[in-house]
């Protein structure tokens, strides 16, 4: 197993303090980590990418015994890549637990549940705060408001247009937890097979697709049809832009607003 150098350690420390970074931040962090300790860094873009991959593999091999991993995740908003440091011990939320009190954690769990249970992958912020009523121990609405702010600044949740949804960091870290806890209502995207909270649904069968997965899939079809082989019903939803390299966030943000026509009651067996 390759040994860690100071460059690896600095890179890892940044992940430990920030939790999640987007692809651009990772590249910049890689450069800084190498330059700080005079580690060779390739000029050639292709070589540098290869070097970065090796670098992350070395770190992951070294931190595996501690149930940690730097893992790639895809934003449900726009399909862009993120890298997060996650805890891989079974369905635990230990990493998250450290920053929060047990009561705060309970509220967060309730929030996760109601987001997973929603049709749009989001709940209104007032509803989120009202979850304090379901807690065993008391929490004021002000404290709940503060907690949401903290969760947002730590990139666990996303708050937009008064709607609270799980951010990429939470999905990366909690995907397994969500499948374990809510097997009846958690669905996978038909294309990428990962957890799908925000996306489009088929009218006639339980199939769901992430916005970015739908846009990739339907870009190859003249008339959009449900991807399930035993369904093939027409897919009457407005499609996100087809050039998936471009950010499609403006469209998906609008559609995740709650009243959208793109999502509808899921055929959840709950």
């Amino acid at each position: 197993m390759s040994q860690m150098t100071d460059s690896h350690r600095l890179f890892l420390q940044a992940f430990m303090s920030r939790g999640i970074l987007d692809a651009k931040e990772v590249k910049s962090l890689f450069r800084t980590s190498c330059e700080k300790f005079k580690t060779f860094i390739a000029d050639n873009e292709e070589e540098r990418r290869h070097q970065l991959t090796e670098f992350v593999i070395t770190i992951n091999n070294n931190i595996k015994p501690f149930h940690m991993e730097i893992k790639k995740g895809v934003s449900e908003e726009d399909g862009s890549n993120y890298y997060g440091l996650v805890n891989i011990s079974e369905s635990s939320i230990t990493l998250l637990a450290s920053d929060f009190t047990t009561n705060e954690l309970d509220l967060f769990k309730k929030l996760v549940e109601s987001i997973v249970d929603s049709d749009t992958g989001s709940v209104g912020s007032t509803d989120a705060i009202n979850l304090v009523e379901t807690l065993d121990k008391k929490m004021t609405r002000n404290d709940a408001q503060e907690l949401l702010k903290k969760l947002e600044s730590n990139k666990w949740i996303k708050v937009m247009n008064g709607q609270v949804s799980l951010a990429t960091r939470a999905i990366l870290e909690l995907e397994q937890y969500i499948f374990d806890m809510f097997p009846a209502i958690a669905t996978r995207c038909n294309m990428c097979k990962k957890l799908c909270l925000k996306g489009q649904s088929c009218d006639s069968c339980p199939v769901r697709l992430h916005f970015h997965c739908a846009s990739k899939f339907f870009s190859r079809q003249e008339v959009p049809k449900c991807p399930a082989s035993d369904c093939k019903s027409p897919w009457p939803r407005a499609l996100p832009r087809k050039d998936t390299d471009q950010p499609i966030s403006s469209q998906t943000d609008a559609s995740s607003g709650g009243t959208s026509t793109q999502t509808r009651k899921r055929k959840a067996k709950s």
Binding site: R18, L29, K36
Partner: peptide, 19 residues
């Protein structure tokens, strides 16, 4: 305690703003 000596200036991308 962090043992890495990153010099006098901490690189901005390592630690989050609030911290």
């Amino acid at each position: 305690v962090n043992k890495l000596d990153v010099g006098e200036h901490n690189p901005a991308e390592i630690w989050p703003d609030e911290e």
